[in-house]
Structure formats: structure tokens, C-alpha cells
Nucleic acid binder design. Structure first.
Lengths: 200, 200, 200, 200
DNA sequence: TGATAAGCGAGACGGTACGTCCGGTCTTGAG
DNA sequence: CTCAAGACCGGACGTACCGTCTCGCTTATCA
């Protein structure tokens, strides 16, 4: 189909439209401040000043610090994580590396902090981008099962939380600098070693 | 050996001694509020009111929300994690279960949030109790290497962050209720499967 | 004369306007607490609680306890002290009575305390309302000189401080209950006796 | 009685006696700080530091800031106000001058502030030294009545509060520098003019 | 002479109040 | 309906100080 464009059903609301440059400026300011001061040190007031706008303009777009941070951090297109080259070992390393970058970096830490700080009732709901990525990882593991690369009956979600959790915790505990490519290979290898299809 | 370690031989500092009941009341109030409102919703003011004391009394004991939360959450004696029965599979499950309890519970989430919310420079330094537990886990894994239960040359710290990270992330994503004993066995099994000594 | 002074033609400043009910509540709370506990026992915290608002709301309006108390106490329109009926004796009694009410009452005491407690450099600057009243008294005395009711060359400000000071000190020393109409007549009479025009 | 001395019934209490040098040091520090920062700016902590002692040592002697200030300010022997030379005009000026010095000086202001700031119930009770002086003034006026220098039936206490109140208020309003000997003569003259015996 | 008692400097404690920051809301005036 | 500008309300912050208490010691009176 040709007229497949216009993936925006935006009903063209009345009134002055939002200034799209503000969205970018706010996100950029958020990331910069997050990197500099962490989640606890981030304030709407500071973001507004840094982005050259005002608090109400931010509140019109995001209703809380948590939402702002999550979107700013996980804005990734998600496509760049593909991790499906056919080589499971390589793909696993890519996933671990992605987890490290996203969860282990200062802004990732901040996003997690925002997620965890919420009141207990308000569980998961990470954010669409993040779940998208995890869905892709999940698909890759299911494919590996089909291909016989790893054992049948495995819980694929466990594979995800193992590698992502390890990445998160390792940077939180040992610092970013302590985690390098060797670490990535080690973790990827240890996990895959436990699930190889050629084992049973 | 006598090891008559005479109760620390406190040097009897000058000044009025602290009221020990306040320590307990503050910690109890912190845990209660953490469970109810999460890390973000915790304030020194509220803790003070709930504990029947005042903010300065808390600040004299803990210099920040992070410190207060970490100590309140990880006050465990540490001894109850032993996890050294000789049966590696059982011990691994115990460790995972401990991680789940400590990191996956509402208060555990809150403690992690506090850890992660800090500005980037201020890395790990979790808290003495937590590192104590991890040291014990580490010792158990080294022992397993010596006994040939798991392969030589393994990085024991990776084993720790894998199981603890998985526990943490799984509860954060799927909620406490979704994580049960089956999950514990699965994770413990998957990790050990990748490192068994009888494999090489 | 039209004098349609159109209510100040407020320039409609930017930003949210103040809640006028808070002004009243704060002043009322201040007077109530002043009457109950005196100047020393008055705190911004207590005023805020009693007025059902918060400290910042008070600080936005008055920058110090002294300012708050002075305005709360001397909010009088000033017009009700007229004291110019043509009968000097009666007018003098009216002035003395006003001084008693304003300076001798519990809240008046408190206002004076606030005035006097300031560091030495920060002299008088009583408050606009108070100086307004004194200016009116001054005018009345000057008129009396012109009419020959009292001697020429008199320092009118001395007349003011004598009656006001006496009122203030008498209540401070003997208590409000000890000061009645007889006292007012006596003081008014003694002062006027010393300055009558028919004397020279 | 001759052996009128020994106005000390001190029962020679047990325990270590108080260090008399501390009394003086504390009073001196109080006056110095009062002059420098006013009543509101005076703190026990500062007095203790300035006097080279500690807070408990001060609290053992005076139970409140008010008590400390009043005693420090009105410690006068009282004898030096004599004001009884036989010349009523001169004596009156002496009294006014004394009032000015004691009530109008920075420390006097501070003492008054302390007096007035108390909760309403806690009325007068100035301090023994101050009432002593006022009693002497009172005696002088009664004598003047007996001698026929001033009219009979006058309320002597009114004469006192008039001159003292005027002195207090004048310095509070116009500042110390604005009040000089001319002012003293004027006030003394105006009061006496109203009460001379040769008038009736 | 030894016991008792109150004083001392030092210094931390529990708690009141302070003065400020900032999160979230609201208003104006313009686009 | 948005924008910038900006003030508002109120929750919470981190700190200063008050008045009290405990310590280890000193200095007196009393037994």
C-alpha cells in the first residue's frame, strides 16, 4: 500500500501546537543533569532552566520525574539491539553489552532508581522502549530453542533477567570502569554454558 | 584461646549517651514507611513523626536518607545466610532465596533505589552487612572450586551478581508474587549447570 | 471634589496572586498567640499552624517576627484616633486612652518588645500606622499652640512621648487592671497643667 | 542596731562553693553581647563562650535569659541616684538623666525588651534594683509634697512613670544620639510646671 | 580522715524553631 | 490550546540553638 504513511492519527487538536524543539531540549537537559547529579539531584526547576523553558511546559509533557527520566533514558529506537546474527554467542554478548550500556551507565542507574523508588503498589511498568527490547531478546532465545542451540523447556525470561540483572548489579557495585569486554564475555559464556542444547 | 573480647571496652565518651530506644524506633518507622510508600515517598520528617522523635535525632545517627535506608534494610546479622551445608545445589538455592528476600522485597527495592539514586561519582559502598553476606557467598564458591564442585578459574563474583541481579530484576519487573520456589530452583539450576566441574 | 481614587489601580503583576484569606488568618493567629504567650513565645511555626497555612506563606509577606508583629498590632486605620474635638482636655484624654490601648495591652507590649529587641543599630522605624497616629497627635498640639490653648515654644514631640511613655510603662509595671479612667484623667491633667497657655 | 552587717544568712551549704569570678565574667559577657547584638541576638551559648565558661554554670545562677539580662543591667548599687539635694529642679533632672541612661541605653532597651516579651501573665516584677530606685524617687517626691514644693494630693507614681516612660520611648523612637541635656531639661521642666505647689 | 555534696569544664543529647528549596499549580498576556 | 514569565502554596529539608544530662574531676563541709 502506498498511503501507508501518516502513522500519526493525531487529530490535529485546536489551539497552538507544541513546540517540538522543546521536547528535545528538555530530554537533553534531563540526560545532562542526570549524568552530572544523578536521579536524586535532578529537579524540574533545574531541567527547565537548563532547557531554556519553564516548569509548566515540562509538566504538560510528563507528569512526574519518573516518567520524564524513563522516557529520556530509554528513547532508543530499539532497532539497534537486533542481536540476531545467527551466532548465539555473539548475540548474547551484544545483549549483555546493551544491558550494560543502558542499565549500567549513569543515566541507566538513574532510570532504575526512579523505577525502584516508586511505592510498592506501582510495580514494573518499565517503559515501552525497554519492554520492546526485552521482547526482542525473548524472541531471539525462542529462536535458539527452535534451532536447538539451547535446551528445550527453558524459561527465556530467566535468561534475560540473569544477564540484565548481572549487568546492573555489577556496575552498581564495582563501578563502570571495572566492567569491560572481558567481563561481558565471561558472563555471556557462563550463562550459555548452562543452557547449551548439546548438553542434554 | 580465651578471646575475652570484653564487649568493645567502650571508652565512655563525654556527653549524654544516646537513647537506644530511639535507634530501634527510627529503624522500625523507616521500614514501615518504606513498605508503605517506597523510597521516593520516605522523608526524614515522616520517619521522625512516626518514630515519635525529631529530625535532629535521626541526623545524629544517619547522615542521609540513603544511609538510613541501607542500614535499616540490611541490619541482618548475616549469620543466618550460612549457605554452607556441603550441598552446593541447596546452598545455591539458599543464596538465591536470600537475595530475593533482601533485594526483591519492597524494602529491598527501596534500598537499591537509594544506592542507585546517588550522583555518579558516589559508587557502590553498599553497606557493611550487605558486603558481609556477599563475602560469605564468595567464600562458599571458592570452597566449591577447591572441592571440584565447579570449574576452576571461574570468577566467583560473577556468580554472585548473576543470582542477586536476577533476583532483583525479576521482582522489579514481574512483582513479588510472580516469583516463587520454582523460580528459585530454575535460576539456581541454570547458573550451576553452566559451571559444574564435571563438565570440562 | 471627586477623589475617585480607583482603588490603587493595581498594575496586575505576573504570577499567581496571593490568597487574601491567608493574610487575615495569619494576622489573626499572630494576635491570638501574642495575647496568649507574648512576644517571646511567638514562633513562625506556631503562627503557621494556628493559621492553617505554612511558614513560606508567612515569609512571603513579612520578613521577620518583628515586622509581622508590628503590622498585626498597629493595623488600625488611624482615623479612629482623631482626637480633635476642639476640647483640648477631652482630646488629651483620648490620646492617652489610645496609647494605653495600643501600647499597654498584651499585644501592644509585644509590639514594643519586638521594637526594642532589635540590635542597637536598627533603631526606631516603628511602623507606618504608628507614626501616622503620632503625626496626628502632633498636629493637634500644634493647633493648640496656635489657638493659645498651650504655651508657645513647646516641643510637641515631648508631649507625645510623655503621655505614651507613661501609658506604656504604667501598664508594664502595674498591670492593665490597675490602670483605669481615673488614671487617664490624672495623667492628662498633669501634663496639660504644665503647659497651659494661660499660665505665662 | 549596729551589727546591721552580715546581710548574708548564707547557711554555708555543703559541697564546693561557686566560683565568684564566674558571676562577674558572665555578667560582663552578657552586657558586652547585649550592647553588640541586642536582646534578640543574645544566646546562652554565646555568653558562655565569651565568659570562658559553660552553659550549665550559667543555668545554675539564672534560670532564664530574662533573669540574666535584668540582673546584669540593673545591678546598680542604687545609691548613686540619690537625687535628693534639696533642689527639686536639679533632682528631677538627675532622675530623668538616670532613666535615660538605664532605660534608653542599648542594654536598657534590651532589659525592657526582655520584660515586655514575657507572656502576659508574667507581669511586672522588674527586678529588685529597679524597684529600689523607683522607691527612692517616690520618697523624694513625697518629701517635695511635705515641703510644699509640689501640690498636695498628687500621685507620685505618675510622676515617675511620666519621666521614665518619656525617656524610654524617646530613645526608642529617636535614638540615643537625639537625646541630650536640653531634652532632659525640657522634660523635667514640663513635668514640674504642671505640679508646682505655688500654682494652686 | 573519709564520706557526702555541690561545684567545675567538656561535650553530646532530645527537641523547637528556623529560614530555604523545590514540586506542583495557577494566573496573566500574548500567539 | 499553547507559550514564557513568574508568583503562589505547602511538604520537606538540613541547621542553630535551647535547656538538660552524663561524665570525670575538684573543692568544700560534715561525720
Amino acid at each position: 500500500m502506498v498511503t501507508e504513511l501518516l502513522d500519526q492519527d493525531v487529530p490535529a487538536r485546536a489551539g497552538r501546537p507544541r513546540d517540538p524543539r522543546l521536547d528535545d531540549a528538555i530530554v537533553a537537559a534531563t540526560l545532562a543533569l542526570l549524568e552530572e547529579r544523578g536521579y536524586a539531584g535532578l529537579s524540574f526547576t533545574a531541567v527547565a532552566t537548563h532547557a531554556g523553558t519553564t516548569k509548566p511546559a515540562i509538566y504538560r509533557r510528563w507528569s512526574s520525574k519518573r516518567d520524564l527520566v524513563l522516557e529520556a533514558v530509554f528513547r532508543t529506537q530499539g532497532d539497534d539491539v537486533v542481536a540476531n546474527t545467527g551466532d548465539l554467542d555473539a548475540d548474547m554478548r551484544t545483549m549483555v553489552r546493551w544491558s550494560l550500556e543502558k542499565l549500567g551507565s549513569p543515566v541507566g542507574r538513574a532510570a532504575l532508581a526512579g523505577l525502584l523508588a516508586e511505592p510498592p503498589g506501582t510495580a514494573g511498568t518499565p517503559t515501552d522502549q525497554l519492554t520492546l527490547v526485552w521482547r526482542r531478546m525473548d524472541e531471539r532465545f525462542r529462536e535458539a530453542i527452535e534451532r536447538g542451540e539451547i535446551r528445550q523447556g527453558l524459561d527465556t525470561s530467566s535468561l534475560i533477567v540473569m544477564q540484565a540483572g548481572a549487568a546492573m548489579l555489577a556496575t552498581a557495585l564495582y563501578g563502570e570502569s571495572a566492567i569491560d569486554d572481558t567481563w561481558v564475555e565471561r558472563i555471556a559464556g557462563m550463562i550459555l554454558d548452562g543452557v547449551r542444547g548439546d548438553r542434554g
